[in-house]
Amino acid sequence: MLALFLRDIRLSIRAGGGALTGVIFFLAVIVTIPFGVGPDLNLLARIGPAILWISALLACLLGLDRLFQADREDGSLDLLVLGNDRHMLALTVLVKCLAHWAGSVLPLVIAAPLLGLFMNMAPVGIGATALTLLVGTPAITFIGAAGAAVAVALPRGGLLISVLVLPLIIPVLIFGVSASYGAVADPDPFLQPFLILAALTLFLAVLGPVAAALALRHGTD
């Protein structure tokens, strides 16, 4: 299992991997926002956490379609499915999700504080947003894995995955953003939405890989 994790990390870093694409897309969206909404610094600071979250979410969706498709195209997926007796397929999927998160999404979380400066956010707000992203983005990958598994056989499945997955990610977005606001706006709570966000991630860490494994088992042809 560690071997699978290391292989996927290596692939995401080497040429053709998606590690940089997401960060560049994230940067592009955040840099465009101030041009769109105008140079009102207070407004930017107010919408900052929400914009960071939405951009990070879209950047997460960007690389999801390759999660299983690359393995399917070169035949590795067949062997991963056949290995079910040694490594339960749901666990294999979980490890692939963790590797995908560490390789393609973690760079977004690391870049988020820097991009928060572009939005004129206060240091506490930046810290809180980065923390909620760190805890919340794995949930996006886990649901995304289920979507990616369903659409694995489709040559242009990327858009379909986004459409399938977006409605399911909305709760993660809501609690992520409200926890980020809770840290800066005084009467709003931080801890409660943050704990619900953590619970969502843990819940989806089980449900997503199991659903994806089911889809992959029945999707081989």
Binding site: R10, G75, D85
Partner: peptide, 20 residues
């Protein structure tokens, strides 16, 4: 215990990553 666990399957594709 099962056929799947006892077999090596070599399909049309080689199941190797070009980047590694």
């Amino acid at each position: 215990p099962s056929v799947a666990s006892a077999c090596h399957y070599l399909g049309h594709q080689n199941a190797m990553k070009p980047a590694l």
